[in-house]
Structures are given as structure tokens and as C-alpha cells.
Amino acid sequence: MGALLRIEDLSVHFPVRKGLLQRQVAEVRAVESVTLSLNRGEAFGLVGESGCGKTTLARTVLRLVDPTSGAIWFDGKNVSALKGKALAPYRKQVAAIFQDPFSSLNPRMTAGQILSEVLHVHRYEGNIRDRVAELLSICGLAPRFADLYPHEMSGGQRQRVGIARALALDPELIVCDEAVSALDVSIQAQIINLLEELRVKFGLTYLFIGHDLSVVRHLCDRLAVMYLGRIMETGTSEELFGSPRHPYTKALIDAVPAPDPDGEGMREHVALAGEIPSPLNPPSGCVFHTRCPIAMDQCRTNVPPLTQLGGHHAAACFALENVRAPNPTKTSKGDLQ
């Protein structure tokens, strides 16, 4: 069980151009030096607020956006430089599910046509009609849905078609970008359960992008918290939610109200002050320092490295051990609780 996907020191910058000559006047650093790897068969979560780069990272993995630097290794192959036809095999192995099934499904095609199109494009060798029926049934839709248009379905049913389309070519990795965020609470739970069931059944690997921490924690074995293009903390769900070490992770978890009036009444919570800075003009040093309750002088000038904390746990913060230069390779001892 090696790594299926390895993202190595990946940066994605977008130029901002202005004027008649379209001169580059600035740069949005959407993703900055991100390194992470996904094991085969696991669900990996990326969480963060708007502008944190999670969607850009997902689109880069899908090869819809070109990386500025760094590499993406898939199944031992570097796919970050592939272009045109050379990408076709990769596109078969990696699929995507998007947030809003209404805008990601062609309104003028029936579910059956949407699914057969994918199979046609990639020259599916079996019987396409049988495969469409099979895909619908895998996703909990009756055969009659093959003849329905997206507007004739409910939000949950549309998302099931979106999932069926992602599964069409038997992919290894599925990138789920806010795949359940637009759904009603009761439907959201149905889709979460379906995604879990499919992962186990087909040995799928998920890169799950979301802003709802409780959903991501429920679905994912490991996750990374991003802020303004950088990874702030990463680890297993148990490590991150059980003993968060980065002040931003702590604030994020704290901001989520639990559906429990007794617990909420007891809990003292402090809302994180300030706004998310613009990725056009990110703060110097640690990008979080402008909102950090424990920021120190060095946070304003130096970028904290991602420090290993034992297990899968790592965080990028100078306050972890109150040492000036944490050794990124050594596991800190005694403070893991």
C-alpha cells in the first residue's frame, strides 16, 4: 500500500495582468510549497476557508490548472508536465465530483446520455447501456433515471448522477470538491454514506475538499488544514481534532457550533478576530500571524516550517515548542499528550 498520489513542493501562482500591454502587475499565490501524499484506498481531506487554495490544489491535481513549480506523482509517474494526449490515461484514473450538480451536469442531456458520453469519449469496450444501468444502480438510482433530465431530479438525485459519472471509468482517485455542501441536511447524510460505501466497495482513494469540518472529519482518515495557500497542520482525524496544535486549527474547530445546547452552554468559545487577508497580498512571515492570538515577533518575518510531531501529525507554527528553529526531521518528545 504505497502512496497513490504524491504532491511535492507544489506551488500555483496566477499572474494578475493590467493595461493595454497586459503587463503582469501582481501575482496571486494560490498554493505555496504544498507537500502531501495520499495512500491507496484512503480518504484524505483538505479543509480551509475561502481563498485558502484548496480548490486550486484540487484543480491542479485534476490537471485543469498548470502548476508553477513542484511535482505531482501519480502511481509512480510524474503527471505534472504531461500535456494533451499524454494526459488521457491519467484522466481515466482520476475523476471529480463537484459541489453543484446542477451546473456540472449538462441540462440538455438525460442522465443516460451524460453517463454514456464519458464512456464513449474514453472508448469504453463493454456494452455501454449495461454499464449505464449498472452505474445508476450502484448510486442508488432506479433504471428510469436514465431518461430523466437534471431539472427533473432533486438535488440529491443529481449528485448521485454526478457520482455515477465519476465512477464510470473505474477511476482510482476521485477528487470531491465540496461534494455535499449544497445539499439539504438529510440528503447530505445519504450522499456521505454513499461515498463511504463506494470507497470501501471499489477500493477508491478520495481527495475530499470541504469547508465543513464535521463532514470532513467524518469521512476522512487524514486531513490537512490550509490557510492562504499553505498547509498549517496535517495529521489523522484523531490527531487533528483530538489534539490540534496550530492556533488556526484550534480556532477553526472552536468556530463550529455543536448540535448540543448543553455542551454549547458550557463551552466558552472565542471567535477568531479579523478577516482572511487577500491572497494577492499575503502577510509576511507566517501567513496566519495577522489573526493569530499568540503571534510573536519572528512570526512576522519568518515562515514557520512544517514540523513533525510524531505519527502523521505535523504543524507549521513557531509556538509549538517555543524554540526558535525547530528541527523539521526530529520528532518532538514529551508534548504530545
Binding site: S154, G155, G156, Q157, D184, V185, S186, I187, Q188, A189, Q190, I192, N193, L213, S214, V215, R217, H218, L219, S237, F241, I253, V256, A258, P259, D260, G263
Partner: peptide, 25 residues
Amino acid sequence: EGLLRSVPRLDQDRSIPLKPIQGSP
């Protein structure tokens, strides 16, 4: 009851399965 069982919660074990309400609103 169905609504409350449909939401994943940070204050509970993540292995507790969600029990969605069948069908659509």
C-alpha cells in the same frame, strides 16, 4: 430525530454512522 442523526458531529466519535432520512424533502 432524523435531522439530528443526519449530521456528523465534532463532539462525537467519528465512527458513529450517520442515519440519513430516506427520500427527499
